[in-house]
Design a protein around this nucleic acid. Structure first.
Lengths: 165, 165
DNA sequence: CTTGAAATCTTCTAATC
DNA sequence: GATTAGAAGATTTCAAG
């Protein structure tokens, strides 16, 4: 299920192009990669089936939606037991302010990436949704000055990833 | 530039649908929202022009690409001056292991989300690309057990965001 | 993997409300 | 000013080689 997949240079080329712009047409992909459009269709369908491509996502600007302030919240959940962390995760995941949630090693159990209107909104969020919860032992808030997406995700340098199956 | 934009219920409905699946056709959007396909085209084009929609992105599974271990690195850069942090950011952004980079308030200046092959790969990355740099004063590594994407990004509850421009 | 054709989708113009 | 209908042009998709 989590095993890596064998990718040839054509797959990698297609993935790089689609990561650059997920709306690139099969015709353009074909011209760029040097195969027929139907081959690109076939490759992309296979990459979807094999789970390499999880989906197509819209990137939105939170500031344009009235959520111009972003922050990371480090949260300790104590005691750190399944019957407490399950509901915690579910609640945090469904908050409209939450963008991403990580379960981590280390003293802080969770990291929550949130997008809010302003500092007052952030204060409300921390007080009403985090520190008010019995299982939340500690919350540390850090504001995000700036963030960057990084280059395309590709297999480690060898070129074809792992041993496949 | 970062001002929020006025969105009516049709825009919000379209955004919700596209965040669910960015490949939804205008025809399907139209049927769901209750307007003509050409209207959907128009709305989406406007949302792009106004900057609400930044682009279309492919979501990939790092594990399937041979990067089954993810981690967050907290980094202190000292002294924290522009002539040092500029090259640092540029270098980290272009690492194939980097997925996202945040400049933060608080004692740790940067948070780097990385995807690597295994713990040996992570050790190499930390030693060769972080602690070996003169301006990196401290690196704290936390492994990611699990991560979740959260619900669709929408304007704060009032329904239409901000005052527009 | 490619060709080629059919179905579907995107996109534009003109007309309408 | 925004929306719709309809038509032309692309694109996607499939079957056959």
């Amino acid at each position: 299920m989590a095993d890596s997949v064998v990718l040839d240079p054509v797959d990698l080329h297609i993935l790089r192009l689609l990561q650059n712009d997920a709306r690139t047409t099969y015709r353009e992909l074909a011209a760029e990669v040097g195969v027929a459009p139907s081959t690109c269709l076939d490759r992309v369908a296979r990459l979807r089936r094999s789970g390499v491509i999880l989906g197509h996502q819209l990137r939105l600007d939170p500031a344009k939606l009235g959520r111009g302030l972003e922050a990371l919240l480090s949260v300790q959940v104590r005691p750190h037991r399944r019957e407490l962390i399950g509901p915690f995760v579910e609640r945090i995941r469904t908050l409209p302010e939450s963008r991403a949630l990580f379960h981590l090693t280390g003293p802080d159990d969770y990291l929550v990436h949130v997008a809010v209107t302003d500092t007052a909104d952030l204060q409300r969020l921390v007080l009403d949704e985090f520190t008010s919860r019995r299982e939340v032992a500690r919350v540390e808030t850090r504001l995000i000055f700036q963030q960057w997406e990084c280059g395309p995700l590709l297999p480690p340098s060898s070129g074809s990833a792992g041993t496949g199956h």
